[in-house]
């Protein structure tokens, strides 16, 4: 850049210098907006989280980390952490498994490939609320023979009675049932990510391995799967941060029930129903920290490798 400028005529250089910051003024409104609405509001939330604000009128009296410390001895928040861990594990592992399997199947150049691809992706276009309302009825928890409905009824009709269960009413693991709905919604997206990765594997590499006598299975295990690690990493980060924030899907499937509570629901209820602003803000900040741990290294990595030109 410097050398290019130096080679220009003096007049042109002067004009460039004058206009050097013109672009800055064009993006300034966005910088200000994001500065206020993202960074400013985060700082403001931190301040609320360190205050004793409770009730309708703001009260910024500093109480240090009290809200945070209280959360970690709060049984409800412990349930939230447990649920988030279960949800994340089921959702991320489920989406990765289904996504990768579908991508490999679609990579075989079978007839109807484009149809399958669009079909597996369509849930992405639907809101979590719609998904949740429909799944609420498919996950109908009734288990008595004459009241079976939803998946349980389907299992019964298929002679798979041993699969009948109470879904989201199952103690401790109920949240995993909601994760099924999330898998339905996001596994197609995971498939698309993997398919992009598979298509980037050069054909020559596969051919070379086959010529060397590798079976189709070996080609995948030894050559292709190891090349998909970066895709898996991206997918884990994208899916992981969705599951940390999960909110509307759970509300739509099960309403606000304590056994299915997650931090985002607790935050909402305690703040806007209970008016415990200090506590609500500290849950929000804890969520932010856990997402940032995932995202900042990822942003750093992908922007560095993703390419300046």
């Amino acid at each position: 850049m410097i050398t290019e400028n130096a080679s220009l005529k003096p007049a042109a250089r002067r004009r460039l210098n004058l206009g050097k910051y013109a672009g800055f003024f064009l993006v300034l409104p966005s910088i200000i907006a994001v500065g206020i609405f993202v960074y400013g509001f985060i700082a403001w939330s931190v301040r609320v989280s360190l205050s004793q604000w409770k009730g309708l009128t703001p009260d910024y009296t500093f109480v240090g980390l009290k809200n945070y410390i209280n959360l970690f001895s709060d049984p409800r928040f412990m349930v939230d952490i447990r649920n988030t861990v279960i949800f994340t594990l089921v959702f991320v592992l489920g989406s990765l498994t289904i996504g990768l399997t579908l991508a490999i199947l679609l990579d075989q150049h079978l007839p109807g490939e484009a149809f399958f691809r669009s079909l597996f992706l369509f849930p992405m276009a639907i809101s979590f609320i719609v998904t949740g309302v429909v799944w609420r009825w498919m996950l109908n928890p009734a288990i008595t023979a004459d009241r079976l409905s939803g998946f349980n009824l389907l299992f019964h009709n298929l002679g798979l009675d041993f699969l009948i269960n109470q879904w989201h009413l199952t103690p401790t693991w109920g949240i995993a049932a909601v994760a099924l709905a999330a898998i339905w919604q996001m596994s197609g997206y995971t498939m698309a990510l993997y398919l992009g990765g598979l298509r980037a594997v050069p054909d020559e590499l596969r051919e070379a391995a086959r010529v060397d006598g590798a079976s189709e299975l070996q080609v995948y295990r030894r050559i292709i799967l190891p090349m998909l690690w970066p895709v898996t990493l991206s997918a884990v980060i994208i899916l992981g941060h969705i599951s940390l924030k999960v909110f509307d899907l759970i509300i739509a499937v099960a309403g606000k029930q304590l056994p299915l509570d997650v931090p985002a629901i607790y935050m909402w209820q305690t703040t806007f129903d209970g008016l415990f602003y200090g506590r609500g803000a500290s849950i929000g900040i804890l969520l932010l920290i856990s997402v940032a741990v995932l995202i900042i290294p990822y942003l750093y990595y992908s922007l560095r490798s993703g390419g300046e030109s």
Binding site: A22, T271, I295
Partner: peptide, 28 residues
């Protein structure tokens, strides 16, 4: 149409894409 420091702007903006909105909901 870059300007000095513009390389920093994109990552700073992008962070806003991932934040859990719970962390800005009260001020908002």
């Amino acid at each position: 149409w870059r300007f000095p420091g513009s390389n920093l702007v994109l990552p700073l903006l992008l962070f806003g894409m991932f934040i859990p909105y719970q962390s800005i909901l009260i001020p908002l």
